[in-house]
Amino acid sequence: MKQEPRLKALSDFLKNQRSKISPQSVGMPSGSRRRTPGLRREEVAQLAGVSTSWYTFLEQGRDIKVSASVLDAIAGALKLNSDERKYLYDLALDNSFHPKLSIGESTAISPSLLKILQELKYCPTIVSDRHCNIIGWNEAACHVFIDFRLIPEQERNMISLLFTKKEFRSLAVNWEHFVKDYLAIFRTYYGQYVADPWYPEFISHMESNYLDFRQLWNQSEVSEAPEVMVEFRHAKAGKMVFDLSSLQAKGESDLRLSIYTPVENSSTEMKLRKLLEG
Protein backbone atom coordinates (compact mmCIF):
# COMPACT_ATOMS: atom_id res chain seq x y z
CA MET A 1 0.00 0.00 0.00
CA LYS A 2 1.34 3.41 -0.91
CA GLN A 3 2.53 5.40 2.09
CA GLU A 4 0.56 8.51 3.02
CA PRO A 5 2.50 11.65 1.93
CA ARG A 6 2.48 13.05 5.48
CA LEU A 7 4.03 9.90 6.93
CA LYS A 8 6.57 9.58 4.13
CA ALA A 9 7.61 13.21 4.67
CA LEU A 10 7.96 12.52 8.40
CA SER A 11 10.05 9.41 7.75
CA ASP A 12 12.36 11.19 5.30
CA PHE A 13 12.81 14.15 7.65
CA LEU A 14 13.71 12.06 10.69
CA LYS A 15 16.20 9.96 8.73
CA ASN A 16 17.84 13.04 7.27
CA GLN A 17 18.11 14.89 10.58
CA ARG A 18 19.53 11.80 12.27
CA SER A 19 22.23 11.53 9.62
CA LYS A 20 23.41 15.09 10.32
CA ILE A 21 24.38 14.52 13.96
CA SER A 22 27.81 13.15 14.75
CA PRO A 23 27.91 10.60 17.59
CA GLN A 24 30.72 12.52 19.31
CA SER A 25 28.59 15.68 19.53
CA VAL A 26 26.09 13.89 21.79
CA GLY A 27 28.57 11.83 23.78
CA MET A 28 28.23 8.62 21.78
CA PRO A 29 31.28 6.56 20.70
CA SER A 30 32.05 6.95 17.00
CA GLY A 31 33.12 3.34 16.54
CA SER A 32 34.57 1.82 13.39
CA ARG A 33 31.61 -0.25 12.22
CA ARG A 34 29.22 2.55 11.35
CA ARG A 35 27.98 2.07 7.80
CA THR A 36 26.01 5.31 7.62
CA PRO A 37 26.73 8.86 8.82
CA GLY A 38 25.13 10.25 11.94
CA LEU A 39 23.31 8.51 14.74
CA ARG A 40 21.69 5.10 14.76
CA ARG A 41 17.99 4.74 15.49
CA GLU A 42 18.64 3.18 18.88
CA GLU A 43 20.88 6.10 19.82
CA VAL A 44 18.18 8.65 19.00
CA ALA A 45 15.72 6.58 21.04
CA GLN A 46 18.16 6.47 23.96
CA LEU A 47 18.72 10.24 23.87
CA ALA A 48 14.97 10.88 23.68
CA GLY A 49 14.11 8.38 26.41
CA VAL A 50 11.80 6.24 24.26
CA SER A 51 11.95 2.62 23.20
CA THR A 52 13.91 1.73 20.08
CA SER A 53 10.95 -0.12 18.58
CA TRP A 54 8.64 2.88 19.09
CA TYR A 55 11.11 5.30 17.50
CA THR A 56 11.69 2.84 14.65
CA PHE A 57 7.97 2.73 13.95
CA LEU A 58 7.86 6.53 13.94
CA GLU A 59 10.82 6.84 11.57
CA GLN A 60 9.38 4.17 9.30
CA GLY A 61 6.33 6.37 8.87
CA ARG A 62 3.88 4.05 10.57
CA ASP A 63 0.61 5.61 11.63
CA ILE A 64 1.13 5.58 15.40
CA LYS A 65 -0.07 7.96 18.09
CA VAL A 66 2.47 10.45 19.42
CA SER A 67 2.33 13.10 22.14
CA ALA A 68 3.76 16.60 22.10
CA SER A 69 6.01 15.79 25.08
CA VAL A 70 7.59 12.82 23.30
CA LEU A 71 8.08 14.90 20.17
CA ASP A 72 9.81 17.51 22.33
CA ALA A 73 12.24 14.83 23.49
CA ILE A 74 12.90 13.66 19.93
CA ALA A 75 13.36 17.23 18.73
CA GLY A 76 15.90 17.75 21.49
CA ALA A 77 17.75 14.56 20.62
CA LEU A 78 17.93 15.62 16.97
CA LYS A 79 18.92 19.21 17.88
CA LEU A 80 16.09 20.75 15.86
CA ASN A 81 15.71 24.51 15.69
CA SER A 82 12.32 26.21 16.13
CA ASP A 83 11.32 25.98 12.45
CA GLU A 84 12.37 22.33 12.25
CA ARG A 85 10.43 21.56 15.45
CA LYS A 86 7.28 23.11 14.02
CA TYR A 87 7.72 21.08 10.84
CA LEU A 88 8.10 17.90 12.91
CA TYR A 89 4.96 18.67 14.94
CA ASP A 90 2.93 19.51 11.82
CA LEU A 91 3.78 16.14 10.29
CA ALA A 92 3.71 13.91 13.37
CA LEU A 93 0.58 15.41 14.94
CA ASP A 94 -1.13 15.93 11.57
CA ASN A 95 -1.54 19.63 12.30
CA SER A 96 -1.67 20.48 8.62
CA PHE A 97 -4.28 23.02 7.62
CA HIS A 98 -6.68 22.00 4.92
CA PRO A 99 -6.54 24.52 2.06
CA LYS A 100 -9.43 26.95 2.08
CA LEU A 101 -8.87 27.74 -1.58
CA SER A 102 -9.61 25.22 -4.28
CA ILE A 103 -6.66 23.82 -6.19
CA GLY A 104 -5.88 26.12 -9.06
CA GLU A 105 -8.00 28.96 -7.71
CA SER A 106 -6.24 32.26 -8.25
CA THR A 107 -5.38 34.54 -5.35
CA ALA A 108 -5.94 38.24 -5.79
CA ILE A 109 -3.59 40.85 -4.40
CA SER A 110 -5.35 43.42 -2.26
CA PRO A 111 -5.11 47.13 -3.16
CA SER A 112 -3.09 47.75 0.02
CA LEU A 113 -0.55 45.10 -0.99
CA LEU A 114 -0.32 46.58 -4.47
CA LYS A 115 0.41 49.95 -2.87
CA ILE A 116 3.23 48.39 -0.84
CA LEU A 117 4.71 46.91 -4.02
CA GLN A 118 4.67 50.32 -5.70
CA GLU A 119 6.25 52.05 -2.70
CA LEU A 120 9.12 49.53 -2.64
CA LYS A 121 10.42 51.10 -5.82
CA TYR A 122 14.10 50.37 -5.26
CA CYS A 123 13.60 47.05 -3.49
CA PRO A 124 12.87 44.19 -5.91
CA THR A 125 9.87 42.42 -4.40
CA ILE A 126 8.03 39.22 -5.31
CA VAL A 127 4.65 38.14 -3.89
CA SER A 128 3.98 34.40 -3.85
CA ASP A 129 1.32 32.05 -2.50
CA ARG A 130 1.69 28.85 -0.45
CA HIS A 131 2.58 26.90 -3.59
CA CYS A 132 5.32 29.47 -4.33
CA ASN A 133 3.35 30.58 -7.37
CA ILE A 134 4.32 34.16 -8.20
CA ILE A 135 1.20 36.31 -8.18
CA GLY A 136 2.73 39.77 -7.94
CA TRP A 137 5.95 41.73 -8.36
CA ASN A 138 7.18 45.26 -8.83
CA GLU A 139 9.11 46.83 -11.68
CA ALA A 140 12.43 46.48 -9.88
CA ALA A 141 11.97 42.70 -9.67
CA CYS A 142 11.49 42.52 -13.44
CA HIS A 143 14.74 44.41 -14.00
CA VAL A 144 16.82 42.36 -11.57
CA PHE A 145 15.37 38.87 -12.10
CA ILE A 146 13.28 38.28 -15.18
CA ASP A 147 10.29 39.96 -16.80
CA PHE A 148 7.56 37.89 -15.17
CA ARG A 149 5.00 39.35 -17.57
CA LEU A 150 6.57 37.31 -20.37
CA ILE A 151 6.10 34.02 -18.51
CA PRO A 152 2.70 32.29 -18.86
CA GLU A 153 0.73 32.49 -15.62
CA GLN A 154 0.64 28.70 -15.15
CA GLU A 155 4.46 28.60 -15.30
CA ARG A 156 5.10 31.34 -12.74
CA ASN A 157 6.21 29.08 -9.92
CA MET A 158 9.33 30.31 -8.14
CA ILE A 159 10.66 26.85 -7.30
CA SER A 160 10.22 25.66 -10.86
CA LEU A 161 11.72 28.82 -12.38
CA LEU A 162 14.85 28.49 -10.24
CA PHE A 163 15.61 25.21 -12.01
CA THR A 164 14.27 25.89 -15.49
CA LYS A 165 15.35 29.45 -16.30
CA LYS A 166 18.98 30.11 -17.12
CA GLU A 167 18.49 33.72 -16.00
CA PHE A 168 18.23 32.57 -12.38
CA ARG A 169 21.11 30.11 -12.60
CA SER A 170 23.44 32.76 -14.00
CA LEU A 171 22.19 35.57 -11.73
CA ALA A 172 23.01 34.19 -8.27
CA VAL A 173 26.71 34.02 -7.42
CA ASN A 174 25.94 31.04 -5.19
CA TRP A 175 22.91 29.55 -6.95
CA GLU A 176 22.77 26.51 -4.66
CA HIS A 177 22.48 28.58 -1.48
CA PHE A 178 19.95 30.85 -3.17
CA VAL A 179 17.79 27.86 -4.07
CA LYS A 180 18.14 26.23 -0.65
CA ASP A 181 16.62 29.30 1.02
CA TYR A 182 13.52 29.04 -1.16
CA LEU A 183 13.28 25.28 -0.68
CA ALA A 184 13.47 25.79 3.10
CA ILE A 185 10.43 28.09 2.91
CA PHE A 186 8.68 25.68 0.55
CA ARG A 187 9.18 22.82 3.00
CA THR A 188 7.57 24.90 5.75
CA TYR A 189 4.46 25.26 3.57
CA TYR A 190 4.57 21.54 2.81
CA GLY A 191 4.48 20.72 6.51
CA GLN A 192 1.48 23.01 7.03
CA TYR A 193 -0.48 21.88 3.97
CA VAL A 194 0.65 18.28 3.55
CA ALA A 195 -3.02 17.30 3.03
CA ASP A 196 -2.96 19.30 -0.22
CA PRO A 197 -2.35 16.77 -3.05
CA TRP A 198 -0.67 19.47 -5.12
CA TYR A 199 2.56 19.17 -3.09
CA PRO A 200 3.43 15.48 -3.62
CA GLU A 201 2.53 15.81 -7.30
CA PHE A 202 4.76 18.87 -7.75
CA ILE A 203 7.65 17.40 -5.74
CA SER A 204 7.46 14.12 -7.68
CA HIS A 205 7.54 16.04 -10.98
CA MET A 206 10.56 18.10 -9.91
CA GLU A 207 12.45 15.07 -8.57
CA SER A 208 11.82 13.16 -11.80
CA ASN A 209 13.02 15.97 -14.04
CA TYR A 210 15.76 17.75 -12.09
CA LEU A 211 18.49 15.80 -10.32
CA ASP A 212 19.77 18.90 -8.52
CA PHE A 213 16.28 19.53 -7.13
CA ARG A 214 16.21 16.02 -5.67
CA GLN A 215 19.64 16.46 -4.09
CA LEU A 216 18.82 19.81 -2.50
CA TRP A 217 15.30 18.81 -1.43
CA ASN A 218 16.61 15.70 0.31
CA GLN A 219 18.74 17.88 2.59
CA SER A 220 15.47 18.66 4.42
CA GLU A 221 16.25 22.24 5.42
CA VAL A 222 13.37 24.15 7.00
CA SER A 223 13.04 27.90 7.56
CA GLU A 224 9.89 29.95 7.90
CA ALA A 225 11.51 33.27 7.06
CA PRO A 226 15.25 33.24 6.32
CA GLU A 227 17.03 36.59 6.34
CA VAL A 228 20.19 36.37 4.26
CA MET A 229 22.45 38.47 2.11
CA VAL A 230 22.57 37.46 -1.55
CA GLU A 231 25.01 38.48 -4.23
CA PHE A 232 23.97 38.69 -7.88
CA ARG A 233 26.01 39.08 -11.03
CA HIS A 234 23.59 41.03 -13.18
CA ALA A 235 24.10 40.91 -16.97
CA LYS A 236 23.85 44.71 -17.27
CA ALA A 237 24.59 46.10 -13.80
CA GLY A 238 27.33 43.73 -12.67
CA LYS A 239 27.68 42.95 -8.97
CA MET A 240 24.58 43.66 -6.90
CA VAL A 241 24.17 42.81 -3.21
CA PHE A 242 20.83 42.56 -1.44
CA ASP A 243 19.51 41.68 2.00
CA LEU A 244 16.59 39.28 1.55
CA SER A 245 13.70 39.58 3.98
CA SER A 246 10.81 37.15 3.75
CA LEU A 247 7.58 38.50 5.24
CA GLN A 248 4.27 36.69 5.49
CA ALA A 249 1.04 38.62 4.95
CA LYS A 250 -1.56 37.63 7.52
CA GLY A 251 -4.87 36.30 6.32
CA GLU A 252 -6.45 33.30 4.61
CA SER A 253 -4.56 33.87 1.36
CA ASP A 254 -1.22 33.03 3.03
CA LEU A 255 0.84 35.33 0.82
CA ARG A 256 4.55 35.98 1.26
CA LEU A 257 6.65 38.98 0.26
CA SER A 258 10.27 38.32 -0.68
CA ILE A 259 11.90 41.75 -0.42
CA TYR A 260 15.41 42.37 -1.70
CA THR A 261 16.82 45.51 -0.05
CA PRO A 262 20.02 46.98 -1.52
CA VAL A 263 22.84 46.54 1.00
CA GLU A 264 23.75 49.83 2.65
CA ASN A 265 27.04 51.43 1.58
CA SER A 266 27.10 49.40 -1.64
CA SER A 267 26.53 50.67 -5.17
CA THR A 268 23.51 48.38 -5.63
CA GLU A 269 20.77 51.00 -5.27
CA MET A 270 22.53 53.35 -7.69
CA LYS A 271 22.81 50.54 -10.24
CA LEU A 272 19.16 49.65 -9.73
CA ARG A 273 18.10 53.24 -10.31
CA LYS A 274 20.00 53.25 -13.61
CA LEU A 275 18.30 50.01 -14.67
CA LEU A 276 14.87 51.47 -13.94
CA GLU A 277 15.68 54.71 -15.75
CA GLY A 278 17.26 53.02 -18.74
Rank of each mutant, 00 (worst) to 15 (best):
S67N: 08
S69C: 06
L71K: 08
D72C: 10
A75S: 02
G76A: 00
A77M: 01
A77S: 07
L78E: 02
L78S: 06
K79I: 10
N81F: 01
S82L: 00
S82T: 04
D83N: 13
D83W: 04
E84Q: 09
E84I: 05
E84T: 07
R85Q: 15
R85T: 13
Y87K: 04
Y87W: 10
L88V: 13
L88C: 10
A92T: 06
A92P: 03
L93N: 06
S96Y: 06
S96H: 11
H98Q: 07
P99V: 01
P99M: 03
P99C: 02
S102M: 02
I103M: 09
G104T: 13
E105H: 14
S106N: 15
S106I: 13
T107D: 06
P111D: 08
S112Q: 10
K115G: 15
I116E: 07
I116G: 12
L120Y: 00
K121S: 07
Y122S: 02
C123H: 05
T125W: 00
S128N: 11
C132L: 14
N133S: 15
I134Y: 07
I135K: 06
I135L: 08
W137V: 01
W137H: 02
A140E: 04
A141F: 00
C142W: 05
C142H: 12
F145T: 03
I146Q: 10
D147Q: 03
I151A: 10
I151P: 02
P152H: 14
Q154C: 11
E155W: 02
R156Q: 12
R156G: 14
R156W: 05
N157R: 11
M158P: 03
I159V: 09
I159F: 04
L161Q: 04
L162F: 04
F163G: 13
T164I: 04
K166N: 14
K166C: 08
R169H: 05
R169C: 09
S170A: 15
A172H: 04
N174K: 03
W175N: 11
